[in-house]
Amino acid sequence: MGLFRSILLSVSFIFLIFTPKLTNGILKRCFVCRSRGELGSCKDPFTVNVTQIDLEKGVEAVPCASGWCGKLLETENPLKEEYGVATERMCLRRGPSDSEDRCAYVKWNFRRVLMCFCRGDLCNASNRLTVNLPVLLTSCILTRLILRFL
């Protein structure tokens, strides 16, 4: 029984160390679309998910080599800060220099816009945190096994 426990702990430890490296190598996708005003499906709240992507005109889920997705919100009057006149979701060539997910006001084509950056598969759908479900489930199962045999 002691040998089995040692093997199980070793496998769990190796899995937890190497899992982030394995999942980082998987190609990430981003939603790509543009909406103006009430027209289109790209605006917030964004209700499209990957299973409905073929049904939505003008919305795609494209592979993104950098792994960084973006969402850009334009306004007609930046003084009022009423964003949402135009919404664009995209794949970015590269992420921010500090590699942090965030939203910030930036200059884009000589206009002040609100731009959000995120890294992850289809992360530019909303502001919610995405969870890697297979890794979460495997970690829960391994933890349960370890606790059962301790």
Rank of each mutant, 00 (worst) to 15 (best):
L114K: 01
M90L: 13
S97Q: 15
R102C: 02
T75G: 04
C42Q: 05
E74P: 00
G70R: 05
N77F: 06
C33L: 15
V85L: 11
P96W: 04
C33E: 13
A65V: 13
M115Q: 12
G58C: 08
D54G: 13
T51N: 11
D54K: 10
V50D: 13
E88F: 00
K28C: 13
C42F: 05
K21T: 14
A61V: 12
R111L: 06
E56I: 15
L72C: 07
L55F: 15
L73C: 04
K71M: 11
S66K: 02
G84L: 01
C69A: 09
N109E: 02
R89G: 02
G58D: 07
F110K: 00
A104Y: 07
A65P: 04
C33D: 10
K21G: 10
T47F: 03
C30S: 05
T47K: 09
S41C: 10
G67T: 06
V106S: 04
N109Q: 07
G95H: 01
K80D: 05
Y105T: 03
R102V: 01
E82N: 10
D54Q: 14
V62C: 12
A65F: 10
R102L: 03
V50A: 12
W68I: 04
W108S: 05
F31Q: 03
C91L: 04
F46E: 11
R119K: 06
V59R: 09
K28W: 02
N109V: 01
C30D: 13
D101S: 05
A104C: 10
K28F: 04
T75E: 13
N24W: 11
K57G: 12
T23D: 06
E82Y: 10
G67D: 13
A104P: 07
G37R: 14
R112I: 01
N49K: 01
A104E: 15
D98C: 00
T87M: 00
G40A: 06
E74G: 00
T51Q: 14
V32W: 14
S99F: 08
E56N: 14
A61T: 10
R89D: 00
T51A: 11
I26S: 14
A86H: 05
R89P: 04
R111M: 07
D54A: 15
K107W: 09
P63Q: 08
L72I: 09
L92S: 02
R112H: 01
D121S: 11
L122S: 09
C42Y: 05
S35P: 08
P78V: 04
W68C: 07
C91T: 02
V113D: 14
A104L: 12
C118H: 01
L39P: 10
F110E: 00
G58F: 09
K107V: 02
R111P: 01
C91M: 02
K107N: 01
S66V: 06
L55D: 15
W68A: 07
C116S: 10
R93A: 04
G58E: 09
